[in-house]
Nucleic acid binder design. Structure first.
Lengths: 253, 253
DNA sequence: TAGTTCTGCGTATGGTCTACGCATAAAAGC
DNA sequence: GCTTTTATGCGTAGACCATACGCAGAACTA
């Protein structure tokens, strides 16, 4: 039996193939009124407006003026739709940094770009990740990150680990700040008032003798002053980059 | 009007109060056949056996030989149950490190302990976190982490940031390795065969001219060798600790 | 013994995803 | 131009899910 053209791997979900433009329209049959990008755009619009929990198949279909089951002609399952929503939600990666900038400035720029996206679309953080990146934009972001490390002498595996480390940090930090915003909105208090209230609650619950270190943190008033979330972000990122810098220096010699 | 005893904060969910032992049984009425710890234990048993998606109110009730709605007498909502499941799932924090050990050895121990828990109970990673830690065990882990930094001269806010940084890293790393395991089980391939297959798929999709850095990673064969996930974990953790060490040194002088 | 109060649970509502099958529209081949 | 082929849109229906509400009865106090 002759080898087919694209037989070299496990079958990709149809929607992924269409995201890479590998799917030509079959010559016969009626014109499709819906398209994968159209469906994904509608889903993203719903998520932007009312959050990820509002994204149901029927809601997206209503957004398009179509019937619920019409979507399943183009998309295999809701999980597949979510995957494509993440791809569209991230958008294109940031362009390359200025030529003179080093890897550290480049990665900082890259990390801030991701944080900005996640701050704009917090629903991205609620999509359960089911596997390694496979969609065009996702791999584009990965590529952009890796390129920042081109001039270093890190091993390829180390570059990969570094990128994973940073994107993990960004996602984590974005999750925490989003939780504070969401929590204060749910509780109906000022955003700056949530952490002090939390501190008071914890202080009431814990026994200072059994939780001395935590008690010290609470009485230090850290939670009372609402510091710039940007400072918090920069603090952690700089610690990580410091650690990476030590490795880069070691590999350079 | 006289001040009541525990009026100093917003009302806590009843289940949280009972987790802190703040809830005495009312003297009247029939003996409750169910208890909050019993329900939580049953839910944890279900999650351990069949994953978090199997945890539905009816399934937990069936586990207890009770009716679905019986649970709502003890627990306000499913989210509340999930919160308590996380608390029980984590279990007690690791004990204090040996007196001679420094902060770095202590934090390493602490981080590995959390990783071990998350490796054992991957469903913990799928519980959507809705707020800062408020349950006894969660705060116990936080306390144990903070104590590792007792001998440093970091500011209290910096200690907090450091702990957040590390726990975020551990969660992220555990999520990634759990995804690989889950993905290979779902695809029915050997765990060591998933990443190479992923690499082949990506290599087929991307254009080397547009994704040069990524192409280089793929052709370097990083994904083909299945390295010890422990090495991967240690690599990232050491980078972070290197960065923290630089800060600790700066604050010591 | 009477009264009170809390427990367990049955019923019912409205939501979710999605498997299946039918009528129809559009193109290809003769 | 007519027939055949094929894919499309969508209606119906099933199997789940969380949970609001209200009732019968048990266990305690007085």
């Amino acid at each position: 039996m002759a080898a087919k053209k694209d037989d070299s791997g496990p079958a990709l979900p149809p929607a992924i193939e269409s995201a890479w433009g590998l799917r030509e329209r079959p010559p016969k049959g009626p014109r499709p009124g819906l398209s994968v990008p159209g469906i994904v755009d509608a889903a993203v619009r719903v998520a932007d407006a009312d959050g990820l929990t509002a994204v149901s198949m029927s809601r997206v279909a209503k957004e398009l003026g179509a019937a619920t089951m019409a979507l399943y002609r183009h998309i295999g399952s809701k999980d597949e739709l979510l995957l494509l929503m993440v791809d569209a939600g991230y958008g294109p990666p940031p362009g390359p940094a200025a030529p003179g900038d080093g890897w550290r400035a480049g990665l900082t720029r890259w990390a801030r770009a991701e944080r900005d996206v996640l701050r704009q679309r917090t629903w991205l953080l609620h999509v359960p990740i089911t596997g390694p990146p496979i969609t065009p934009q996702q791999l584009g972001w990965l590529e952009a990150g890796l390129r920042c490390l081109d001039d270093t002498h890190l091993a390829e595996s180390e570059k990969m680990s570094v990128i994973l480390l940073i994107t993990g940090y960004v996602r984590n930090e974005a999750t925490l700040t989003a939780q504070i915003a969401e929590g204060s909105r749910a509780a109906g208090v000022e955003p700056g008032e949530l952490m002090p209230a939390y501190g008071r609650t914890v202080a009431r619950l814990i026994d200072p003798a059994r939780f001395p270190a935590l008690h010290r943190v609470l009485t230090s008033g850290v939670l009372n002053q609402d510091d710039d979330p940007d400072d918090e972000f920069t603090f952690g990122l700089d610690r990580i980059l410091d650690g990476i810098e030590a490795l880069v220096r070691r590999r350079a010699s």
